[in-house]
């Protein structure tokens, strides 16, 4: 069940991520750089399905979601580092996994970096950083660190009032979405619905295995690495099989669309993507989650650690995008100046 369920979910998720081009780096970055909100809408739809779904399944007694303690320094630092890393890696954690499947060698470099980065922090040589940053926590009246408990909402009615307060404006915003132009693959609606349902299904299948968490990429990557390197299978769960299935599902989707092609970026970009992946791995392991574990699964429980970390993932993404933008602009201005100096009447392209 763990293996078959995990691999099946992973294949479907990889297929959906590739068909929908679902990259949360792009979603987060768009607030800073672009006016297009298609992937933000896909993410919002994933959250909408999961915030409502997780609350409902919790009330029905199917789930008992595990929520991270509010180790705010780790959430802030880890999130920020992860956000900076994913810009250089050319994709978030899930984005990197699915792009490996379709043969983007730069993403494979980023994944190798991510594996090393997570291993260094999670029980590795740099574990001290994680321990230090997670040492300071804010207690939420001895209860789970969720927005519900921060606001003191104990009754079912009060909890659902908060959920309605969050989801109704989101539904209103999504329903006003303009037509998505220049579409290749799935629309944001189809992508968000598919990823959302698969993320919710992961909660249910995990619960059947006694794991009270949803979709995640960081811990399963660490567990898989540990198992492959040392044979220790303690951390292996359904989620570890999902991360194995994702690149395969993405490969199948890309193959069907003729997009499964080995492609090598220039050497500088290759190294940068490796470094970005490693930075992403360090950040995710410090913060206790990535754009999936925190920004989808954790946020769906309205966990304040996940919400804080997501805010800082965005901030890190914006800062690094700003650095990249300025650096590319300087490069281009230097090229134009050199071209004008060399051949004032020359071609411009």
């Amino acid at each position: 069940m763990i293996v078959a369920g995990g691999i099946s979910l992973g294949l479907l998720l990889g297929y959906a991520l590739q068909r929908g081009g679902y990259c949360m780096n792009t979603a987060f970055r768009s607030f800073y750089l672009e006016k297009d909100r298609s992937l933000v809408r896909a993410w919002a739809l994933v959250l909408l399905i999961n915030v409502i779904g997780v609350a409902l399944l919790t009330d029905l007694g199917v789930l008992l979601p595990e929520v991270a303690p509010f180790f705010w320094p780790a959430a802030i630092v880890g999130g920020f580092v992860f956000g900076m890393g994913m810009v250089l890696a050319g994709g978030c954690a899930s984005g990197t996994y699915y792009r490996c499947g379709r043969g983007m060698l730069g993403s494979i470099a980023a994944l190798v970096g991510f594996v090393i980065g997570t291993a260094l922090i999670d029980g590795g040589a740099l574990v001290e950083i994680q321990q230090q940053l997670r040492g300071t926590t804010i207690d939420v009246s001895g209860r789970e660190a969720t927005l519900f408990n921060v606001l003191g909402l104990e009754s079912t009615a009060a909890r659902w009032l908060l959920i309605a307060g969050i989801t109704i404006p989101a539904i209103a915003w999504l329903s006003r979405a303009p037509k998505q132009r220049f579409l290749i693959g799935w629309s944001w609606r189809k992508t968000g619905a598919a990823v959302g349902v698969l993320a919710l299904a992961t909660w249910v299948i995990s619960a059947m295995q006694g794991r009270d968490f949803g979709l995640s990429f960081t811990q399963p990557t660490v567990a898989l690495t540990r198992f492959l390197v040392t044979g220790d299978s303690a951390g292996i769960s359904v989620a570890s099989f999902i991360v194995i299935g994702v690149p395969v599902g993405a490969f199948l989707a890309a193959k069907a669309a003729g997009e499964a092609i080995l492609r090598m970026p220039d050497p500088g970009r290759f190294v940068r993507q490796f470094g970005g992946g490693a930075t992403m791995g360090l950040g995710a392991s410090i913060a206790g989650g990535c754009n999936i574990g925190h920004s989808i699964t954790g946020v769906s429980t309205l966990g304040i650690t996940a919400i804080t970390s997501t805010a800082f993932i965005m901030l890190g993404c914006w800062v690094m995008t700003g650095i990249v933008y300025r650096s590319e602009r300087r490069k281009m201005e230097a090229e134009v100046a050199a071209m004008r100096a060399a051949a004032p009447q020359g071609e411009t392209s």
């Binding site: 990259c23 780096n25 792009t26 750089l33 050319g90 994709g91 492609r263 933008y325 281009m332 411009t348």
Partner: peptide, 21 residues
């Protein structure tokens, strides 16, 4: 085309950043 830019091996955000510039 007055100008051509080859971004075949580029990924986001470089594709949009370079196109915009």
């Amino acid at each position: 085309a007055d100008r051509t830019v080859d971004l075949l091996s580029e990924v986001c955000p470089y594709t949009f950043v370079k196109s915009k510039l």
